[in-house]
C-alpha cells in the first residue's frame, strides 16, 4: 500500500528580530491510510510546528525552508494557496488543543459546522443542516437539533471538543491532525473523547497524527510513534517497541520520569537533569548532549543521524550509542560491493 503522507527532511524556519531560527529540522516520517502516528515531546520541541507545516498554516513569519510534504502523491509545499484551501478541511483537517478558543464565540455551532460542509461538499443550506445534525449525533452530542442553534459558550469543554471533532470529520478527510486534543480536558472527559476518536477512526478508516506530551495518551492510541527533541526526531518505532525497548537516552528518560500508578512510591523518580535548550542557543553536535548521561566527546562535536536499527528496520534512533552497528553495516556493505 502506498503511503498516504510522506514527510521528507522537513525544515521549518521562523523570522524573528534576532534573525532566522530553525524550529523543525530534518524531520521525516510517513503514514499509511488508517494509521495513527503519535508525535511526543516536550513544549518547544517542534511537534506543533511540524503539523502546521503540513497544513501550511505557519503564519507570516514562518516558512518551510527545505524538504517535502507529499500527500496522496501531491507535493503540498508547491501548491497555490487556492489549491491548499481545497485540501484543508476536505482531505486533511485539524483538531486543536483549546476547544475554548478555537471556536468562534459569535457564531452558532451550526453556522460554524455548516461553513465547511457547504464549501467542500457543495450541499444546500437545508441539506447541510441535516448533515451537521447527523455529525453532532455521531460524536455523541445529546439534543443535537437544539445544540446546533447554541453558541459555543453554552457548551462545556468536552462538548466543544466533540464539536471540533465533528467539524474535522464532516468532510470525511483521509488525515486528521490532532494537536493535543485532550490536554485541556479533565481525565474522565479525556477518556470519553479518546474512546470516541478510536471508534470513529475504525469506522471511517481515517489516518491520525496525534500530537501530545502525554505518553499515556500515546500508549492508548498510536500505532507508531516519533519522539521529538529540540526540533528533531530522535526516535521512531511502533508503539510496542517504543515502550518495551526504548533506545534513545531521551526516550528512556522520558518514560522513566512519569510517575506510574503501579510504581512503588518509596522509589525515587528518575528525572532528566537540566532543561530543553532554546532555539537560539542550540548545542553543537547532538542536541541532547547537554542533558545526556552517556554523552561522549563525539556527541559534543558531531551531529548524529537518524539510524535504522539492524534488528528492527522500523525502529530508528538518532544517537551515536547505536552507531557501532551502523559502522559494521557500512563496512559489510563496502566489503560486499
Amino acid at each position: 500500500m502506498a503511503n498516504l503522507l510522506d514527510v521528507n527532511n522537513l525544515q521549518t524556519v521562523f523570522r524573528t528580530d534576532k534573525g532566522e531560527v530553525t524550529s523543525v529540522d530534518e524531520v521525516s516520517f510517513s503514514l499509511k491510510e488508517g494509521e495513527t502516528l503519535g508525535i511526543v515531546g516536550e513544549s518547544g520541541c517542534g511537534k506543533s510546528v511540524t503539523s502546521l507545516s503540513i497544513m501550511r498554516l505557519l503564519g507570516k513569519g514562518g516558512r518551510v525552508k527545505h524538504g517535502s510534504v507529499k500527500f496522496k502523491d501531491r507535493e503540498l509545499t508547491n501548491l497555490s494557496e487556492q489549491e491548499m484551501r481545497n485540501i484543508r478541511g476536505n482531505d486533511i483537517s485539524m483538531i486543536f488543543q483549546e476547544p475554548m478558543t478555537s471556536l468562534n464565540p459569535l457564531l452558532t455551532i451550526g453556522n460554524q459546522l455548516m461553513e465547511g460542509i457547504r464549501l467542500h461538499l457543495k450541499l444546500s443550506k437545508k441539506q447541510a443542516k441535516l448533515y451537521a445534525i447527523d455529525m453532532l449525533k455521531k460524536v455523541g452530542i445529546p439534543r443535537a437539533e437544539a445544540i446546533i442553534n447554541e453558541y459555543p459558550h453554552a457548551l462545556s469543554g468536552g462538548m466543544r471538543q466533540r464539536v471540533m471533532i465533528a467539524m474535522a470529520l464532516s468532510c470525511k478527510p483521509n488525515l486528521i491532525l490532532a494537536d493535543e486534543p485532550t490536554t485541556a480536558l479533565d481525565v474522565t472527559i479525556q477518556a470519553q473523547i479518546l474512546k470516541l476518536m478510536k471508534k470513529l477512526k475504525n469506522e471511517l478508516n481515517t489516518a491520525i497524527i496525534l500530537i501530545t506530551h502525554d505518553l499515556g495518551v500515546v500508549a492508548e492510541m498510536a500505532d507508531k510513534v516519533i519522539v521529538m527533541y529540540a526540533g528533531q526526531v530522535v526516535e521512531e518505532a511502533d508503539v510496542y517497541t517504543l515502550f518495551d525497548s526504548p533506545k534513545h537516552p531521551y526516550t528512556k528518560g522520558l518514560i522513566k520520569s512519569i510517575p506510574h500508578l503501579d510504581n512503588d512510591s518509596s522509589e525515587r523518580l528518575d528525572s532528566i537533569p537540566g532543561t530543553v535548550p532554546t532555539l537560539q542557543h542550540m548545542p553543537k553536535g547532538c542536541r541532547f548532549h547537554t542533558r545526556c548521561p552517556f554523552a561522549t566527546e563525539r556527541c559534543i562535536n558531531e551531529k548524529p543521524d537518524l539510524l535504522q536499527l539492524k534488528e528492527n528496520e522500523s525502529h530508528s534512533v538518532r544517537c551515536f550509542l547505536y552507531d557501532s552497528e551502523q559502522l559494521d553495516k557500512d563496512v559489510r556493505e563496502e566489503v560486499n560491493s
Partner: peptide, 26 residues
C-alpha cells in the same frame, strides 16, 4: 474507581484493559 480507570496508562500492552468510561459532564 472511575477516575483511576480513566487515567491513560503509559503501557500499550494495557490498552485493551477494561475501562469504565462514564457519560456526561460534571
Amino acid at each position: 474507581k472511575i477516575l483511576l480507570s480513566a487515567y491513560p496508562v503509559p503501557n500499550p500492552h494495557m490498552r485493551n484493559r477494561e475501562q469504565i468510561v462514564v457519560e456526561g459532564d460534571v
